[in-house]
């Protein structure tokens, strides 16, 4: 397909567990362990999962802010993991990141003008001072801020305003992909909606693609075209938003969705509460990573790691139960 912007294949990011100078151990934390997905131009892929499941590491690995351990990443039809740092640098600005914490994502000693001009300098080092000033104004207006604010420092802004500045900085280099790492999780609910709407508005205007990382299913449901569910460094299910919410197949997805509060208090709902904790990513269970908490786990789940199977067009699930009798039971529970 020609409209594929980003293609991630079997991405692995392991962190060595260092125990000091002379005691290097072979143990690793498998933060991302064999993640594959594709992202089309202009599309939003939501990446959901609980804390520590490797969502953020996936986002940062794609941008090589953290060097992945293995796998391939094709971005704009170039394999970026094979590139040297120098060759990758010009491509770097094609993908940008928006962060969760608006209080840590701006340099406190730099004015908004300074931060944006720095980014503009990356796009075009030859730009004249006047052009830069004009573009800073344009960027601020684009994210819904008063252009007069340019000379201010980050501490003079609210969280939502800072998040807008962070978005403006990412947009300054005209990227095609934006990794939004929990961009609204730190904001008030009323501000969340504004930022989500801004992101959607910018997507339409500029044709951006988003990898939208969040633990908030409601927000992800609102903004995403497709959704990938992660558990312990692996994608357990990936499907279009409609499909996933209508027919979740993986027991973990089902449990995750049952935790979303419903607007109608009288609607009967079965809440599936998972028992136990998430296993340590330093010691991932053999077989299916979810088997320790899955109430349908069988012997094969405890020994063989499930591969992603196509359930319906564009709907993949990595579960041994899919296509078996047990699956019908899961499906019944969700309806």
């Amino acid at each position: 397909m020609s409209d594929i912007l980003l293609s991630v294949n079997d991405l692995k990011t392991y962190f060595p567990i260092s125990k000091g100078m002379f005691r290097n151990s072979d143990e690793v934390i498998k933060a991302v362990d064999g993640v594959s997905f594709q992202l089309r131009k202009g599309e939003t892929l939501g990446l959901v999962g609980e804390s520590g499941c490797g969502k953020s590491t996936t986002g940062r690995s794609i941008m090589r802010l953290i060097e992945p351990t293995g796998g391939t990443i094709e971005f704009e039809r170039q394999n970026i993991l094979d590139m040297s740092a120098a060759r990758f640098r010009p491509l770097r600005k094609r993908m940008q990141i928006v962060f969760q914490d608006p209080y840590a994502s701006l340099n406190p000693r730099m004015t908004v003008q300074g931060a944006l001009e720095e980014a503009l300098g990356v796009k075009d080092p030859q730009m004249s001072a006047k052009e830069r000033r004009d573009q800073v104004k344009e960027l601020l207006q684009m994210v819904g801020l008063n252009a007069q604010y340019a000379t201010r420092f980050p501490h003079e802004f609210s969280g939502g305003q800072r998040q807008r500045i962070g978005i403006a900085r990412a947009l300054a280099v005209e990227p095609s992909l934006i990794v939004a790492d929990e961009p609204v999780s730190a904001l008030d609910v009323s501000i969340q909606a504004q930022i989500v709407n801004l992101l959607q508005d910018l997507q339409q205007r500029l044709g951006l693609s988003y990898l939208f990382i969040s633990h908030d299913l409601g927000v992800v449901r609102h903004i995403s075209d497709r959704i990938a569910v992660m558990y312990l460094g692996r994608i357990v299910e990936i499907a279009s938003k409609k499909d996933l919410f209508a027919r979740p197949l993986h027991p973990y997805t089902v449990a995750l969705m049952s935790a979303v509060p419903k607007a109608n208090p009288f609607r009967k709902k079965e809440r599936i509460v998972l028992s136990g904790d998430v296993p340590s990513p330093a010691n991932v269970p053999v077989g299916c990573a979810f088997h320790t908490r899955c109430s349908y786990a069988t012997d094969v789940c405890r020994t063989v790691r499930p591969v992603a199977t196509l359930a319906s067009p564009q709907h993949y699930v990595a579960c041994h139960l899919y296509g078996t009798e047990g699956m019908k039971y899961i499906e019944n529970r969700t309806n």
Partner: peptide, 24 residues
């Protein structure tokens, strides 16, 4: 995160050190 953000922009290390780390 602001250091990560400028790394994502492709700013060189010495500029990051001088403009973003040293002043802080």
């Amino acid at each position: 995160e602001y250091v990560e953000a400028v790394r994502a922009l492709g700013i060189r290390d010495w500029q990051i050190l001088l403009k973003h780390i040293l002043p802080n």
